[in-house]
Design a protein around this nucleic acid. Structure first.
Lengths: 241, 241
DNA sequence: CGAAAGTTTGAGTTGCTTCAACCGCGGTGG
DNA sequence: CCACCGCGGTTGAAGCAACTCAAACTTTCG
């Protein structure tokens, strides 16, 4: 009882369940399983069967495509976000790996219970659809970045998107993963940062990065940010190089 | 009346509306707008506002990311499939272009009506979720292909996936678009086909392509295979080169 | 038939990767 | 306390796969 009560409380604060009717939420809370993972533990692997979805309550999770040579980082999932849903609806095995980037508290929900909730609460359906759509746009953006932009453009775009979300001084733990997210090798990523620093656009001190100069006029199509404007090689790049 | 009746009939045969209750379907049919597009006409462009979604009834639609230099083809949408949904749920402008590849009959549904249908029929929600999930997996696959595979691997994988769906003799209209879908230039695509033909794996006669030899251990559901990088060392490629 | 677009082929270029060495830092244990 | 290791990151040099540019050829279609 205590457990269910706590879980209900916990879930009710997550965006995914915002506005969902108490009865449905209670059922979900009842059916949910708490899962803890230590930093670096695998949550699931490519090829595993998907029986449900995960919601991050505390911590951060890395989603990536595994490869013998090098993995490709897809995205980072934080509190309130779900993952593993896409494949769940298709009855396919996972294409991706999910790994805890820090000690994590997750909620796991069985496919059956999710479907029940969908049947009883359209609000929940909408949240799922929105989440999936958001994730879809992110992927779309990544495809665009990888296909149509050079290394420096990718890094610039990434930094700008970070600075849009947060403030001027940024902290990049694990540049290797960022490089992979941008579809670059760590070496190329490092060199790109070096070039941007040299050109005076940013300053780099270890993992701390500061944007010194904004892109001219309306920025370079921030490639990791859905719904932004347009342009690649004009704008900032024209002014710098 | 006649029109609505026909539309109801039309929609009821589409997978997207399979199992949806007659009342909801009738409302949707009532609210839907028939849209015809001639071959090569743009259906929407990046930056346009998304007020609803489209369903292909007849014809084929190309979804692509525009670029000054060259566009990137995302996918081809055929009868019974929806497009433009992802962005609709987010109230973002489109990131993509949609263009008719042939003369098309489309149904357009307003966001409001879609949301109403979601609220009244969980089956419809599920179809949307499944569709979005399927599309998501496709993108994931594309990202993997572009990031982790060489030109020849991409082409081989694509041909194998076609042959899995259909039969040995394939028809590729517009190789330029296929090349773009695979993240290659037309030249590189052409050369890759040439190499595969020379190695005896396929035969190419204009736009008609025949697979002559299967890949060893014909798994290619997911294009992450050993030997992706070191082509000379394993898998199919070792046997060919 | 002729123009326009698509495709192939050749030659040269390049941006990213690869390989390798090196640095700095945190943890560990002798 | 410091030597040692391992790992993340940086830097240099060299290679290469795919791109660009260009020209010839083919198909499509008005």
């Amino acid at each position: 009882m205590g457990k269910v009560q706590d879980t209900f409380e916990l879930l009710s604060h997550l965006k995914l369940f915002d506005g969902v009717s108490p009865e449905v939420l209670r059922n979900l809370a009842d059916a949910s399983v708490r899962i803890r993972h230590q930093k670096n533990e695998m949550i699931f692997r490519r090829g595993d069967l998907a029986r449900g979805l995960y919601v991050v309550v505390i911590g951060e999770v890395k989603i990536s495509i595994p490869s013998q040579q090098r993995e490709k980082v897809i995205e980072f999932i934080g509190p309130g976000q779900a993952f593993g849903e896409a494949v769940m609806f298709l009855d396919h095995p996972y294409l991706i790996n999910a790994q805890a980037l820090s000690d994590c508290l997750l909620m796991w929900l069985d496919k059956r219970d999710i479907k029940l909730a969908i049947e009883h609460d359209a609000k929940f359906s909408m949240h799922l659809l929105e989440g999936l759509s958001r994730r879809f746009e992110t992927l779309l953006n990544d495809i665009e970045v990888v296909n149509l932009h050079t290394a420096i453009e990718r890094v610039t775009g990434y930094l700008l998107s970070l600075s849009n979300e947060g403030e001027g001084l940024m902290h990049l733990p694990n540049k290797k993963m960022i490089a992979s997210k941008l579809g670059l090798t760590p070496e190329t990523f490092s060199r790109a940062l070096g070039q941007l620093a040299q050109s005076g656009f940013i300053s780099v001190h270890g993992s701390k990065i500061q944007i010194l100069r904004e892109s001219r006029g309306q920025q370079h199509k921030s490639p990791l940010e859905p719904g932004s404007r347009d342009r690649a090689s004009s704008g900032y790049f024209a002014s710098v190089f």
